[in-house]
Simulated assay, not measured.
Amino acid sequence: MGDSATAGLIDEMSDLRRRTRRVRHGYWFPLLLFGVLTLGSMPLLRPFDWRNSPTRRCEHGPDGRVRSCVDQSPSTAFEVPGFGRIDPLGVFNTGYLGPVAHPLALGLYWLGVLVLGFLATVWWYRWRASRVGVETSTRIYAQVTVCGLGVLLLVPLISAVGGRLLWLGGWTQRIASVVLVAVSLGAVLVAMRLSRSGGATSRRRRVLIGLGVAATVVVVSVLAAAVMHKVGGLMLLAIGLLTLALVERSVWCALVVLAFTGFTLLANASYMGTIFYRLGWQIGPEETNLLFNGKDVVLPGAVLIIGGVVALIGHRWANGRAAG
C-alpha cells in the first residue's frame, strides 16, 4: 500500500511538472515577432539604381556613345584617423550582390529589430508570468543579447584593423560560420550552468567570470569579423532564440530555431540566390523583384512565422484540453 501511494505521488508530481512546463511555454510570441520583423526588412533590400543615380557621371566618346561611368553608391562607412574606413552598420547592409539603395535605413532598421524585439520579448515573459503565475527566466537571454550587441559593435572596428587578412570565403568561411555558432552556443551553455550553481560567489570568482565573458566576446567578435558578411541581425537572432529554446526546454522551439539558423548560415554564404534560381523564383527585373531582393530573409522569416503559429495553436489546444 505504501509503495502504491508513493508511486501515485510520483506520477502526480511528474504530471504537475509537465503541466507547469506547458503553461510556462510562451516562445510562440518571440518566434512570430522576429519572423514578422525579419520579413519587414524586405522593402529595404532594394538594390541601388546605378542607371538613374543623380551622382552618376559618364564620359562620352566622339561618336556620342558612353565610354565609362563613375558613381558613388550610398554607404554608412566613414574615415577614422588611425583605423581607416569603418562601417558601424556594415554587418547589416553589406555583402549583397550589389549595394542597397538605403543602407542607413536598413542598418537602423535591424538595430531597432534587435533592441526593441529584445525589450518586447523580456516584457512578454514578465507580463505572462503575472497572468499565469509561472515565470520563464529571461536573464540568460538578456545577457546573451547584450553581449551579442557588443559583438556587433566590435566587428566593424576589428574588420577595419584586420582588413582583408580576416576575410574568409568559400568552404573555409562556411565551416568557420558553423564554428562561430557552436562557440556562441557553448558559451551560452556554460553561462546557464554557472547561473544554476546558485549561492554567493567570491570576488575572485566574479572577476574570473567577467574576464571569461570579455574573452568570449573578443573571440566571437574576431570570428564574426572573419565570416559574417551581411547577416549580423539574423545571426544574433539565431543565438538569442537558441538560448530561449534551451531555457524553455522545448524540442519544437529548438527545431524551428535550428532551421532558422541553417537558413541564416546559407544566406551568410551567399547561397540563397542559387536556391532561388533552382526553384525558379527569380521573376522579373532585380530592381523591382521584392522576393528575389529579399531572398536572404524570406526563408528565415517564414520559418519563424510558421513555427510560431504552430506553437500558438499547440499551446491553445493543450490548454483547452487541460481545462476540459
Rank of each mutant, 00 (worst) to 15 (best):
S184C: 11
S195D: 14
I140V: 15
R22H: 08
C253F: 13
A214I: 03
Q282K: 14
L16W: 05
R67D: 10
G294M: 11
A259K: 04
F263A: 09
V178K: 02
S202N: 05
L44S: 08
R205E: 14
R206Y: 00
V222N: 08
A182H: 05
G232R: 10
W167C: 00
F34C: 07
A142H: 09
C253N: 11
G240F: 05
N293M: 10
I10T: 14
V190W: 12
H25T: 06
L279V: 10
S270W: 03
N293Y: 02
T288W: 05
H102I: 00
A323Y: 08
G112I: 06
L168S: 07
N293R: 06
V155M: 06
R131T: 05
V155T: 07
D71H: 10
Q143I: 01
L189N: 02
A200P: 07
G107N: 02
V70C: 03
L237M: 15
A226Y: 06
G107I: 02
R139W: 05
V188T: 12
Y277G: 09
R19I: 04
D15K: 11
A129V: 12
L16F: 06
R139A: 14
Y109P: 01
I209T: 00
G240L: 04
A176R: 05
V220L: 03
V247T: 14
P74S: 14
V70W: 09
V161K: 10
W167T: 15
R193Y: 02
G307F: 11
S137Y: 05
T243L: 00
N93S: 15
G273E: 05
L157A: 15
V91I: 13
V227R: 13
D63S: 14
